[in-house]
């Protein structure tokens, strides 16, 4: 056997290895098949739809039109307005969430008494269904039914700027705990000795935070930012409940929903979903390639 194998130039797998590999592939097959059926197929199908003129109001006019839908969407002011609103909301909410989340994480990390209680209560907003929370915000800001509307006067949800602020605040209220949780995991990576050493070296509390903690938490911060940015870019439920996209507060997801489900235009709607997918992919790519975010689970700590 061994002489047989040595003759060939390429290393040949032994019988055992081959059988092992076959078994491995067989065992993976069901999972791979299901993944293809439930994720890959819809993606491919929506891409296929995006290349068609396909409006359910005029089913007879369905035909393959190539990239025409893309030119239509990308040259439409509606798309770019929604895109601008989405980007604005993404940036504002993620930045504020990062600051608040870091503060919350530090508090949770430092708490000595009632640690469990503090953590649980901080996580409550994240545990509430977004739509339920959004409705409660909506009633709170609706004149006659809500205390917040009375507090601010008028009907804040009917004005673009204040409506956006309300959407952003609802988003921040809900997801700051998630941010805090991710950041707290990062805080746990900073050894106590290192902070003590910095204190001995003459660093004040703020210097210890900026010069030691933040650089050491960088991987955790970037992962948290990546997750939140991807999520925030697809913002939908808060807007859907609070303003339904009126007063120019619609996000790209909102616009896609209106075209696809309300307008029954499968072609344009699919084009928009594909574009959102592309935008999210670009964000993820930038985070991983430019900022060097390590994908969760991949361990290359030694190389950096």
């Amino acid at each position: 056997m061994s002489t047989h194998a040595a003759v060939k130039a390429k290393p040949v797998l032994s019988e055992g290895k081959k059988a092992e590999r076959r078994l491995g592939l067989l065992l993976c097959a069901p999972a791979a098949f299901i993944m293809i059926a439930v994720t890959a197929w819809p993606i491919i199908y929506s891409f296929w739809l995006s290349l068609q003129r396909y409006d359910l109001k005029f089913p007879d006019k369905q035909e393959f039109i190539g990239l025409e839908n893309y030119t239509a969407v990308l040259s439409s002011p509606y798309w770019w307005d929604a895109f601008g609103i989405t980007a604005l909301l993404t940036v504002i909410t993620v930045v504020i969430e990062l600051v608040l989340g870091m503060a919350l994480a530090l508090v949770m990390h430092r708490t000595l008494v009632g640690r469990g209680l503090v953590r649980t209560s901080a996580l409550i907003p994240y545990g509430i269904v977004t739509v339920v929370a959004a409705f409660s915000w909506k009633y709170a800001y609706t004149p006659e039914t809500g205390y917040l509307a009375e507090l601010f006067g008028g009907a804040p949800l009917t004005d673009k700027a204040s409506a956006l602020a309300i959407i952003a605040s609802a988003e921040i209220w809900k997801t700051t705990p998630f941010m805090a949780l991710l950041l707290m995991a990062g805080l746990a990576l900073v050894p106590d000795d290192m902070l003590k050493a910095a204190a001995m070296d003459g660093a004040s509390g703020w210097q210890r935070f900026t010069k030691i903690m933040v650089p050491m938490m960088k991987p955790a911060i970037l992962v948290a930012l990546l997750f939140r940015t991807l999520d925030a870019f697809r913002i939908f439920d808060n807007i859907f409940v609070l303003t339904a996209g009126s007063q120019g507060t619609g996000s790209v997801s909102m616009l896609t929903y209106n075209n696809l489900i309300k307008g029954l235009n499968l072609g344009i709607g699919s084009t928009m979903s594909v574009l959102i997918f592309v935008a999210v992919a670009i964000i993820a790519f930038v985070f991983i390639k430019v900022f060097g975010t390590a994908a969760p689970g991949s361990d290359n700590g030694g190389k950096r």
Binding site: P191, M194, A197, M200, P215, M216
Partner: peptide, 13 residues
């Protein structure tokens, strides 16, 4: 005063 730690506590970054 300066301190040397058992873990060295060097700043990895």
């Amino acid at each position: 005063i300066a301190m040397v730690f058992q873990s060295y506590a060097l700043y990895p970054h």
